[in-house]
Lab assay of single mutants.
Amino acid sequence: MFKRLMMVALLVIAPLSAATAADQTNPYKLMDEAAQKTFDRLKNEQPQIRANPDYLRTIVDQELLPYVQVKYAGALVLGQYYKSATPAQREAYFAAFREYLKQAYGQALAMYHGQTYQIAPEQPLGDKTIVPIRVTIIDPNGRPPVRLDFQWRKNSQTGNWQAYDMIAEGVSMITTKQNEWGTLLRTKGIDGLTAQLKSISQQKITLEEKK
């Protein structure tokens, strides 16, 4: 169930391209415009997507990853294993993690069937560096609404905000991946996880038929 919630949630996290980005210092504006741009692209490019579902990787690479804190999220997933990894191991892992996100997020976007969304009203940021933004996803086919909290983090150097995690039903996506990959990290280390991520990233994206 959580895996499905995570995939549905990713439908609204794909941010804007650099040329049309919203105010990078306001995570609420980023979330709002990102959702609108993403849904528009999914709707307008269905012919290309249906002809070649792996085209979704391109959308992810162009529109999402430049505005997601990939390395920060990847380091959180590694936890204690990050500090013990060599620079070469980290570089290989982050490259594999990025390719994994292209496949995983692309597969999530393949679930698009006309969903709509509501974003919580903007709250004062103050001096906060981590801000959760509640998004409610509404399914046109009558499924119950899904309420999610996207975690946005302020870059201490640039002042810009980027998304790095999502919490559904009190469970963090980062925590879920830590639990899912924990045994592999304990037995085969970061190299074993890197190899698995490379394998997963090679899987073809498949479209979910409308139910």
Rank of each mutant, 00 (worst) to 15 (best):
D40Q: 12
A104G: 14
M111T: 10
A163D: 14
R50G: 12
I49L: 15
P124I: 14
G159S: 11
L5K: 01
K29V: 12
G170N: 01
M166F: 06
K211G: 12
G182H: 12
I137C: 15
K177W: 10
R41S: 06
L42W: 02
I133C: 12
Y100M: 15
Q178P: 04
E180R: 01
R57Q: 08
L30A: 08
I13F: 12
L148W: 01
L193C: 11
Y67W: 04
T20C: 13
L5T: 01
K37F: 13
S84V: 10
N26C: 10
E209G: 12
L148T: 07
N52E: 14
V77M: 12
Y82V: 02
T116E: 15
T136G: 13
I49S: 09
I59G: 01
A9G: 06
L65S: 07
K43I: 08
E33S: 04
K204S: 12
Q202D: 14
N160M: 14
Q203Y: 08
L56V: 14
K154F: 03
A22G: 13
R41M: 07
L56G: 07
V131Y: 08
R186H: 04
A14V: 10
A88M: 11
I190N: 06
T206F: 08
P53Q: 12
Q80S: 09
A96S: 11
Y117L: 05
M31I: 03
L109K: 02
M7Y: 10
T25S: 12
T158F: 07
F94T: 09
K204V: 08
R143E: 01
L125V: 09
A163W: 00
A95M: 09
D191N: 05
A110E: 13
A34W: 13
W152L: 04
K71H: 05
L42Q: 12
E99H: 07
S17R: 12
G126N: 09
R153L: 01
I167H: 06
Q196E: 15
M7T: 04
V60A: 15
F150K: 00
K210W: 12
T206D: 14
V135L: 04
I190Y: 05
R41I: 03
N52I: 03
M166Y: 01
I200W: 02
D191Q: 09
T206I: 06
K210G: 13
G74Q: 02
R57N: 15
K177H: 15
Q62S: 10
N44T: 12
Y93A: 04
K83S: 10
P27M: 04
D23C: 14
T158W: 05
A73S: 08
Y117W: 09
T86E: 13
N160I: 10
I138L: 09
R41N: 04
Q36A: 09
A75D: 00
N26T: 07
K188D: 06
N179G: 13
K154P: 06
K154C: 15
T183W: 10
F97G: 01
A163V: 10
S201I: 09
K3P: 01
V171N: 01
Q157C: 05
L193R: 04
K211R: 10
K102N: 12
R143Q: 04
I167S: 10
N141C: 08
L197T: 15
R57Y: 15
I174S: 08
A35V: 13
I167Y: 02
N44I: 11
T25W: 13
Q203A: 08
V8R: 01
P87T: 12
L125R: 11
A35T: 10
A21V: 10
T86L: 09
T183N: 11
V68K: 01
D139S: 14
T176Y: 02
E169F: 00
T175S: 05
L65I: 06
V12Y: 15
L30R: 14
A108I: 06
T58G: 06
Y72R: 00
E63T: 08
E33N: 07
E91L: 11
D149Y: 06
E169G: 04
L65F: 15
M31L: 05
A120V: 13
N52P: 00
T136N: 12
K71N: 05
V8P: 00
L184N: 12
P145G: 07
G106T: 08
D54I: 10
M111Q: 05
T158P: 01
G189L: 02
D165F: 00
Y28G: 09
I200M: 12
D139M: 15
P15H: 14
N26R: 07
T183K: 14
K102W: 12
N44Y: 12
Y81I: 04
N160T: 08
L30C: 11
P66Y: 04
A110L: 15
Q24M: 12
G159R: 08
S172N: 02
G159L: 13
T175E: 03
E180N: 02
L11S: 01
A9L: 15
K204E: 12
A14M: 14
E169R: 00
M166R: 00
L16T: 06
V68H: 15
V12K: 00
Q118S: 13
F97T: 08
K29T: 13
D40K: 08
A18W: 13
Q103F: 13
L64C: 01
Q178R: 04
E180V: 04
A22K: 10
D32V: 05
Q162C: 07
D23Y: 10
P132D: 07
T194C: 05
V8S: 04
Y55V: 09
T25A: 09
A35Q: 08
G79P: 00
T116S: 12
G74C: 03
P145L: 07
I59A: 14
G142N: 07
L207T: 15
V77K: 00
L65H: 07
G114Y: 05
E209L: 12
S156H: 03
R98C: 09
V146F: 09
Y82R: 01
I137N: 11
L56Q: 15
Y105W: 09
F2A: 01
D191Y: 07
V135E: 03
T206V: 09
P124T: 11
K154E: 09
K102E: 11
M6Y: 05
L76V: 11
L148P: 02
K204N: 07
Q123F: 14
A19W: 04
E63C: 02
Y82K: 00
P87G: 07
K210A: 12
G126C: 08
I137V: 13
K188P: 06
N160D: 05
D139K: 04
G189K: 05
Y67D: 10
D149T: 03
K37L: 14
E99M: 14
Y55C: 09
L76M: 06
M111L: 12
P87M: 09
Q89S: 11
M166D: 03
K177G: 14
A120C: 08
F150E: 00
D61Q: 14
A92E: 13
T58M: 11
Q162Y: 05
R50P: 08
E63R: 02
L10T: 04
K3R: 03
Y81S: 07
A75H: 00
T58E: 14
S172A: 11
A34I: 05
E169A: 03
A95S: 11
L42E: 07
D32P: 13
D149E: 03
I130C: 03
K102P: 12
P124G: 09
T116A: 15
